[in-house]
Design a protein around this nucleic acid. Structure first.
Length: 290
DNA sequence: CGAGGTACCTGACAGC
DNA sequence: TGCTGTCAGGTACCTC
């Protein structure tokens, strides 16, 4: 899935394109993607006529604040991405009619919101892991998932002291801790690898064993790299696209993620890949010693 | 509580 | 050409 920078890119572009629009209709060929309400007809009825008043990001979640006190939540998981344009269906596939520039045919559109002017917002999702939920805004705030979400790493209020405090008691490996949405919201596999390479810390190092200097370096690199990735409109290593179907440029500057067997740009050693908690960590065995 | 496995899906790619 | 196994930006849910 898109991580924080990719979701932020999407949200910024959506604000420009569809803020203030009314949802006129909903189409889906994979209704299981809508987790709440379970019944698609109910989902369709509740959305009909709602106006998109605000679009926000919280961690990796996209929140559409709608009229009538409702919030539409979309989590894109691994391969979901939102596209804005106008499509027509031809031989079972959605073809771009207007709006999107580079994505001419998309076989993975499973949910479409008709927004008026013939404009549409589509959720394309190869692996169908994305989740879509419609909430009463107040109820959503009370959910465990939301209350448990950690601070926004780019928030001014999120201080180094806070970060140090949250790592102090963690026995887990730092890579896993960085990806734990309860510790910090929005970091996933790409950016955790890139952050740790930047500060020469092993992904296997226990969070509680980090020195003050290391923690500070991670904190700073986290903010720097995420901001840089947002400026570059995210990473399109797999199939993330922005809402016009265009690729992000972070993958051009990444140093280790999915670069197993290549040379470390800093010391020339061969980049290794090793599992950490079920995910692949990519790192330089020389720069990032345990 | 934490750690680890599995489930949810589809597709690309390597090796036989 | 197929078949098999592995891997893929995430997270929920289960068991121990």
């Amino acid at each position: 899935m898109p991580e924080l920078p990719e979701v932020e890119t999407t949200v910024k572009q959506l604000r420009r394109e569809i803020l203030g629009r009314k949802i006129e209709g909903v189409w889906s060929d994979f209704k299981k993607i809508i987790k709440k309400p379970k019944d698609f007809e109910e989902f369709r009825k509740e959305l009909a006529g709602k106006k998109i008043k605000k679009i926000e990001r919280r961690g990796k979640n996209i929140l559409f604040r709608l009229s009538g006190g409702r919030t539409l939540l979309i989590h894109q998981k691994l391969t979901g991405h939102l596209l804005v344009g106008k499509w027509v269906k031809e031989r079972g596939k959605w073809r771009v009619f207007s709006g999107a520039l580079s994505e001419k045919i998309n076989s993975y559109i499973h949910l479409l919101f008709v927004l008026g002017n013939g404009q549409m917002m589509a959720l394309s999702d190869l692996r169908k892991f994305a989740k879509v939920e419609l909430w009463e805004t107040e109820r959503l705030r009370e959910t465990k998932e939301f209350k448990d979400l950690g601070p926004e790493p780019l928030d001014k209020e999120f201080t180094l002291e806070q970060f140090q405090e949250s790592l102090k008691a963690k026995k887990g490996k730092i890579k896993q801790i960085l990806m734990d949405q309860k510790v910090v919201a929005g970091i996933g596999n790409i950016y955790s690898d890139e952050i740790l390479w930047a500060v020469k810390v092993s992904p296997f190092k226990r969070a509680c064993k980090l020195s003050k200097n290391e923690t500070q370096a991670i904190y700073r690199a986290m903010r720097r790299i995420l901001s840089q990735a947002i400026r570059l409109k995210g990473a399109s290593i797999s199939d993330f696209r922005d809402i016009r179907g265009e690729r992000g440029r972070f993958d051009r500057v990444r140093k280790v993620y999915q670069k197993e067997g290549e040379r470390c740009p800093r010391c020339g050693s061969v980049i290794k890949r090793q599992k950490v908690g079920g995910r692949s960590a990519h790192y330089c065995p020389r720069c990032q010693k345990l």
